[in-house]
Design a binder for these strands. Structure first.
Length: 420
RNA sequence: GUGGCUAUAGUGUAAGGGCAGCACGAGAGAUUGUGGUUCUCUUAGUACGGGUUCAAAUCCCGUUAGCCACCCCA
């Protein structure tokens, strides 16, 4: 017997875990709504060049992690590995910059990266993200950072740390990059093999290499190279965070794996997971809109969080989530006539907004009540042939095991009254 | 992509060359039409493919998958 397996690195999300997903997404919609973000729904796949251009052709994501395929007309398409590129593409394609000064979006959905799977690292995973496009104000940076922290806090997460860095802008980053490159070349012998490759291709990445970062003394620090505008803005971000009493740690090793980042970048890490501890990350990307052919000087900032990782933290910290979908009434029947009556009552109760269950197979009353108990129903409605003769049903309170005969004609009214 | 660990009923585990067991779950029943506790019964498993051996869940090889670290990141 051949059985089918899910593809590697993908996961079924089953009840009751889907309740956590629904709750997390509900809280996200509510909170981002309060922050002025509107939902945007963008395609799962895009033309491949969009991702190559925005994420950067020497990044790991583009070099080895994309699900890229040809369609029947030979076009190269790619399953989105992240959300920002698609959002910015949609923003430009729909000329949203002409419609409003600043656009704020959030999105929810699956992303795809061909990586070796591990707990918290899947090939299809889910992100919730938000973007502010149309301003380079430090207030945007702070809104994005605080929206993400508030989101985690409102779910009750503990043990999170916010790490912050600044990557500089078009003006100041090149001088830092050159200094770094020069330094790395003279110290090349100390580097690991991966980093030796990076020196030419993407020197910034050496900064977050765990092997080398400790060995390299007096390596250039971006902070010393920031131009006036960048350091002023970053100072303002720090001021606002302090004013709002948001704790953070400056970490010069945060460089991000996507090339479009400029200025403020951040990661939120948890102590509850293993090596896959980044639960959210983001930053400013002031050049991306113009790089994709849009107007100059449209600043933007955004972040995304990994839903699977978030839910892992929720589970390991044992956080409570409100449970939904409780059965109100379970209908049990006795006899043949009762079946038809029960059928009518079942649907009319449901049409009155009640959550009602009944059994599918012929079973003893005992078994039916057992099912009722298991379903968590507050009431069992027992419909028997004898009672039908008298024009009544038996309404049993499952919690205190009391039961009363109620007139069958009044059943909806009575149950609605008791349930509320 | 590199290195390592692991794989036994739905779930969690035991058996470490010689009869696959336990707990939970699920289903049925315990004097006729009344749930939860208790008791009884039933259900269901050695991931897949090879090899060694009289004999393999157990040893070996391969595959697949999960996990850990690296890498990377959400």
């Amino acid at each position: 017997m051949v059985r089918f397996n899910a593809a590697r690195g993908v996961k079924d999300i089953l009840p009751p875990e889907t309740e956590i997903w629904q709750y997390v997404e509900y809280v996200a919609r509510d909170l981002f709504g309060n922050y002025g973000f509107n939902e945007i729904r963008i395609p799962i796949f895009e033309n491949t060049p969009l991702f190559v251009r925005t994420i950067g052709d020497t990044t790991d994501i583009v070099e080895k992690e994309m699900y890229t395929f040809l369609d029947k007309k030979g076009r190269s398409l790619t399953l989105r590995p992240e959300g920002t590129a698609g959002v910015v593409r949609a923003y430009l394609e729909n000329n949203l910059y002409a419609r409003e000064r600043v656009s704020k979006f959030y999105y929810v959905g699956p992303m795809f990266r061909y990586e070796r799977p591990q707990a918290g690292r899947l090939r299809q995973f889910h992100q919730i993200g938000a973007e502010i496009i149309g301003t380079d104000s430090p207030l945007g940076d702070v809104e994005i950072i605080i929206a993400s922290m508030d989101f985690f806090n409102s779910l009750g997460l503990r043990g999170l740390t916010l790490y912050l860095n600044n990557l500089g802008c078009r003006k100041c980053r090149p001088s830092f990059k050159n200094a770094l490159k020069k330094y790395l070349e003279t110290n090349k012998s100390k580097l690991c093999d991966d980093c030796k490759r990076r020196v030419d291709k993407n020197p910034l990445r050496v900064l977050d290499c765990k092997i080398d970062s400790k060995k390299l003394k007096d390596i250039p620090v971006i902070g010393d190279f920031l131009c006036g505008v960048c350091s002023e803005r970053f100072g303002r971000v720090e001021e606002m965070l302090k004013l709002l009493k948001v704790d953070y740690t400056i970490d010069p090793h945060i460089v991000r794996g996507l090339d479009y980042y400029t200025g403020t970048v951040f990661e939120v890490k948890t102590e509850a997971l293993g090596a896959q501890d980044a639960v959210a990350a983001g930053g400013r990307y002031d050049n991306l809109v113009s790089d994709l052919g849009g107007p100059e000087d449209i600043g933007a900032v955004g972040f995304s969080l990994g839903t699977e990782r978030l839910i892992m933290v929720i589970k390991t910290q044992g956080l409570k989530i409100p449970s939904a979908n409780k059965t109100d009434v379970y209908i049990a029947t006795l006899g043949e006539k009762a079946k038809d009556t029960a059928l009518e009552v079942l649907f009319s109760l449901r049409r009155n907004g009640l959550s009602v269950e009944t059994g599918y197979d012929k079973k003893s009353l005992k078994a039916q009540l057992r099912q009722a108990d298991k379903s968590g129903a507050r009431y069992a409605l027992i419909i028997g042939d004898d009672e039908i003769e008298k024009g009544v049903f038996i309404l049993r309170n499952m919690k205190d095991a009391t039961q009363t005969e109620v007139k069958s004609g009044d059943i909806i009214e009575i149950i609605l009254k008791r349930i509320e």
